[in-house]
Amino acid sequence: MSLHSVFIIDDDAAVRDSLLTLLRSEGIRARGFASGIDFFAAMPDDATACVITDMRMPDMGGAEVVRRLGELRGNAWPVIVITGHADVPMVVQMMKAGIVDFIEKPFDPSRLIETVRGCLARLNDLNQAQGARAAIQVRLARLTPRERQVFDALIQGASNKEIALALDISPRTVEVFRAKVMTKMEADSLSALVRIGLTLG
């Protein structure tokens, strides 16, 4: 069973039910909604999820679903758009809006499953990255204000001498702080420390 849910938004009950059956047969948790309005009115509180939405629906079309989801969840809720009426400008517009894929009806079940699995794999990677950032934040909280200054300078590429000048301390003192930073941040090398900084963004 997938760790993440897939939410299907389609006003065509037959299409919605066939998608639910297909996904559930693959061990993927899936739930359907008859409209974008219904979906947002009862929006699940999952931290991450995948959404499949039809493009042309009454009241709220797929483009509006994509826009609102982007505002509310960002890349934590990737979207796959399905439609029976695709054209090049529409595809380009939706891809620029950040959707994962654009699938035309009648869709190939194997392609849809492949796309959904790729979407769920991205969410697993996202969860791992968020977990790594959370662990780093815990380590950062252990640093004293001065150690944090040294950490920030090191990941910016400053030398011990440059840090000493900037903080008005001796290079020897910088070395002491640097050793403490490496220990508290659980980094066994300067490159490992820089990678930690990159993970934080």
Rank of each mutant, 00 (worst) to 15 (best):
Met43Thr: 10
Arg142Thr: 09
Asp11Lys: 01
Val81Gln: 03
Arg172Glu: 02
Arg139Gln: 11
Met1Asn: 11
Ser2Gln: 12
Val15Met: 02
Thr173Leu: 04
Lys105Cys: 00
Ile113His: 07
Ile155Asn: 07
Arg117Gln: 14
Thr173Val: 03
Leu165Val: 02
Leu20Gln: 08
Leu200Tyr: 05
Gly27Glu: 03
Val91Tyr: 13
Pro44Ile: 13
Ala132Cys: 06
Gln93Phe: 05
Ile103Gly: 13
Met57Val: 10
Gln128Ile: 13
Lys180Gln: 02
Phe102Thr: 13
Phe40Met: 05
Leu123Arg: 10
Glu114Ile: 08
Arg142His: 09
Thr183Ala: 13
Phe151Asn: 05
Ala41Ser: 12
Val15Leu: 02
Leu143Arg: 12
Leu3Gly: 08
Met57Arg: 05
Ser2Arg: 13
Ala47Met: 03
Arg111Ser: 02
Phe177Leu: 04
Asp46Lys: 01
Gly70Tyr: 12
Val92Trp: 05
Ser2Leu: 06
Arg146Val: 02
Ile80Asp: 11
Ile52Pro: 11
Thr183Gly: 06
Thr115Glu: 06
Ser35Trp: 10
Ala42Leu: 09
Phe33Asp: 04
Arg117Leu: 09
Ala134Thr: 10
Ser170Asp: 04
Ala76Pro: 02
Pro171Asn: 01
Arg29Val: 15
Leu22Lys: 05
Arg139Thr: 06
Phe39Glu: 03
Leu190Thr: 10
Gln130Lys: 02
Arg195Cys: 10
Arg16Lys: 01
Pro109Ile: 07
Gly27Leu: 12
Met43Phe: 10
Leu123Phe: 11
Ala129Ile: 07
Asp101Gln: 08
Gly70Leu: 05
Thr53Arg: 01
Pro171Arg: 04
Met55Phe: 07
Gly62Val: 03
Val65Asn: 07
Met57Lys: 09
Ala97Leu: 09
His4Phe: 15
Phe40Leu: 05
Leu19Phe: 13
Asp11Tyr: 01
His85Trp: 11
Glu147His: 07
Gly197Asp: 12
Ala134Ser: 11
Arg73Asp: 08
Val174Arg: 00
Arg29His: 15
Pro171Ile: 00
Leu140Glu: 04
Glu26Gly: 01
Asn127Pro: 00
Asp101Glu: 13
Met1Gln: 11
Ile163Glu: 03
Ala129Phe: 02
Leu23Phe: 03
Ala135Ser: 12
Met57Gln: 08
Gly27Ser: 09
Arg31Ser: 14
Arg31His: 15
Thr115Phe: 10
Ser18Ile: 11
Ala42Pro: 03
Thr144Asn: 00
Ser159Leu: 10
Val51Lys: 00
Pro109Ala: 01
Leu200Thr: 08
Ile163Met: 04
Leu112Lys: 03
Glu26Asn: 09
Leu143Asp: 07
Pro145Ala: 13
Ser2Glu: 12
Ala179Ser: 14
